[in-house]
Design a protein around this nucleic acid. Structure first.
Lengths: 199, 199
DNA sequence: GTCTATAGAGGGATAGAC
DNA sequence: GTCTATCCCTCTATAGAC
């Protein structure tokens, strides 16, 4: 069981890496197998079909995000700092040359099973609900400039970050920094705070 | 030659459709062939490798955009109306269930040839330069609220639209409307103008 | 320019031994 | 739980007839 858990986790780690680098259709069981030094069939044991693997991947992103928000809650941060922490989370993807998992599914939407679509929609919903709540909280406390509904602003910011991570690939990481800067300006968060968060 | 032109164009039309729906790895010469009622080999005659097809596709997007900006210029519109016209262009993709071609290449970046990457970078550059110029013009005329550099604001808006088109797939087209609304709010364009542009 | 035919590689997936 | 072996399919790409 310990071995099973370990292999399963290693598969998901390798798959997540490939997924965010090459897209869903862009990686194969062979790629994962080669990286882990196991055989193709070993992966099919843990994830019978590629759709199963896709769902498991997205489900894990959701779990990670939930865990992340919970530990953030325990730090009792201001809404502005919660936003900055989230920007830092996305910046990490940028530094690693990865894109948002959500974007991958969206682009290949007509190529994936319903099960994958549903899990992706759930992830999008999780992100949106959390960010909208933070923005609303910030607006009430007058520490964030939110235009329109918190929900609308949240969707726009998520779209911006997702697109920004992608554009960074063709135009360079500097472009993602510009996107972060604009997000900050639009919300009225001070430059000094962003520097801390974006590294 | 007339036939050649016609077939070549039909191939590009079908490929563009598939490309923006299923991603680059997600469609094949067979898909195009089936749709056009020709054989696989006929497509290889016009586009020897899939990379050639990818470059031709992106090159055509660039040509279309250049043509679009030129005809827009002849209409002598205000910067705000130029932005609205661009938003309408993106809205059309949303209504057709397509995503931005740039996003497709970005997501599958590590799966495509250098030639495709370079052409995609060129397209990104074209969009960015045009939008940055429009935003700067709007700022000078005090008709657009632009924060930071025109370039930075342009990148952020492009990222937002690209991400918004993608999120619309998992969360519904209404979400893209919210992104448009936020873009408008951030630039200080009136609601009435947006209604006209977004349909 | 388009066809038939096919090569050759790689994809997802399964059976059965260990 | 992982292996070997293999099936069947789809993919890109090419050769050569028409």
């Amino acid at each position: 069981m310990s071995t099973a858990r370990s292999t399963r986790k290693r598969i998901l780690d390798a798959a997540a890496e490939l997924f965010q680098r090459r897209g869903f259709s862009g990686f194969s069981y062979q790629h994962i197998a080669a990286e882990l030094g196991v055989r193709n069939a070993a992966i099919h044991y843990h994830f019978p079909s590629k759709a199963d693997l896709g769902v498991a991947l997205l489900s894990r992103y959701r779990d990670s995000f939930r865990w992340w928000t919970e530990q953030l809650e325990r730090q009792d941060l201001s809404p502005a700092h919660k936003v900055l922490a989230f920007l830092e989370l996305e910046s990490r993807y940028c530094r690693e040359g990865k894109v948002c998992p959500l974007g991958v599914v969206c682009v290949e939407y007509e190529n994936v099973t319903d099960s994958v679509r549903i899990e992706a929609a759930g992830l999008a919903s999780d992100l949106e609900i959390w960010l909208a709540a933070v923005l609303e909280e910030g607006r009430r406390g007058n520490v964030l400039q939110v235009r329109g509904s918190g929900r609308g602003a949240a969707v726009a910011i998520l779209a911006q970050l997702q697109g920004g991570l992608q554009l960074a690939r063709v135009r360079g990481p500097r472009h993602f920094q510009e996107v972060l800067e604009q997000t900050r300006l639009n919300l009225g968060i001070s430059a000094a705070d962003l520097m801390v968060a974006a590294g």
